[in-house]
Design a protein around this nucleic acid. Structure first.
Length: 271
DNA sequence: ATCGCCTCCTGCGCGC
DNA sequence: TGCGCGCAGGAGGCGA
């Protein structure tokens, strides 16, 4: 399940292979992922060069002079650079082919990913327009998180996973950040103190930065078929560790469902 | 305005 | 050993 570090790693991995490259053909092998892949891309893209590769939240934005390809990996998607003669795998849904003889392929078994086209400023696209700040930007800090949570009755875990508040904090890192911050995931967001919000914001940044650094070590894997790109060994303290002992206090890690999502925490450390 | 539930899809794990 | 069932999960959309 790509979290923000995997998406950032993917973006960094594909960028040097595709930026400034001219698209010679595109392949739409599956007409509909989360949404239909615009058929008009066949007219928009060939003959045009990629001018930029950016990330916003978990979207990878592939820029052209006349518009932007907005892509999302969903929960099982991955992108890979390969040669056009490489056999199509099951779930290879979409590909850009370049004049320098490479392809960028989107692979996504769950089909929760997306490929869309934005003519104007992609930040104004319906899917991006209302997103909150990037967690690694300066504007996201404890004060911001505190202000954005006053009066909120939703749990702190759902709060930090709410993309209107802050983007890119997925289910795994939400549990992990709350553990490091000693905050109970079910605590109402509006009842977390300013000081603890600072701790939480700091921990979110630390976890994401560390994961991105580790993801960087797998960048070589983006060329050809070596392994799954962007997935790195993660040191997780609570996620997926129900019934195991807390690394800090040896209490038994609990698992609950919160907002339809599995949630892990230490009932002793987190209050 | 907020919140919580539903939905998309398929691989996988579990139980028998 | 093989089969079938049910769940997980990102995030938009909708109903309350």
């Amino acid at each position: 399940m790509p979290e923000l570090p995997e998406v950032e790693t993917t973006k960094r991995g594909i960028e040097p292979h595709i930026v400034k490259r001219k698209v010679s053909a595109i392949h739409i092998r599956t007409p509909k992922l989360r949404w239909p892949i615009p058929r008009a891309l066949k007219n928009h893209l060939p003959g045009n060069a990629i001018t930029s590769v950016r990330r916003r939240a978990k979207y990878i934005l592939i820029g052209f002079e006349h518009g932007t390809l907005i892509t999302h990996l969903g929960m099982s998607g991955s992108m890979r650079i390969c040669t056009p003669d490489r056999t199509w795998r099951k779930h290879d849904h979409f590909a850009l082919e370049f004049s320098h003889g490479k392809q960028l392929r989107l692979h996504d078994p769950r089909k929760f990913g997306s490929v869309l086209w934005s003519k104007g400023d992609p930040e104004k696209h319906k899917l991006l327009a209302k997103l909150g700040p990037e967690p690694l930007h300066e504007e996201f800090d404890g004060d911001y998180l505190y202000r954005a949570s006053r009066g909120r009755k939703a749990s702190i875990k759902q709060h930090i996973m709410n993309h209107h508040i802050v983007v890119g904090v997925g289910n795994i890192y939400a549990s992990e950040a709350l553990f490091l911050s000693a905050i109970h995931p079910k605590r109402a967001a509006g009842r977390v103190s300013r000081q603890r919000m600072h701790t939480l914001a700091d921990n979110i940044k630390i976890i994401l930065r560390r994961s991105i650094e580790q993801g960087g070590t797998t960048l070589n894997d983006f060329l050809n078929e070596n392994g799954e790109p962007g997935y790195f060994a993660q040191q997780l303290n609570v996620y997926g560790r129900a019934a195991e002992k807390c690394v800090s206090c040896k209490s038994v890690i609990k698992s609950i469902i919160l907002g339809q999502r599995s949630t892990f925490y230490c009932p002793n450390c987190q209050r």
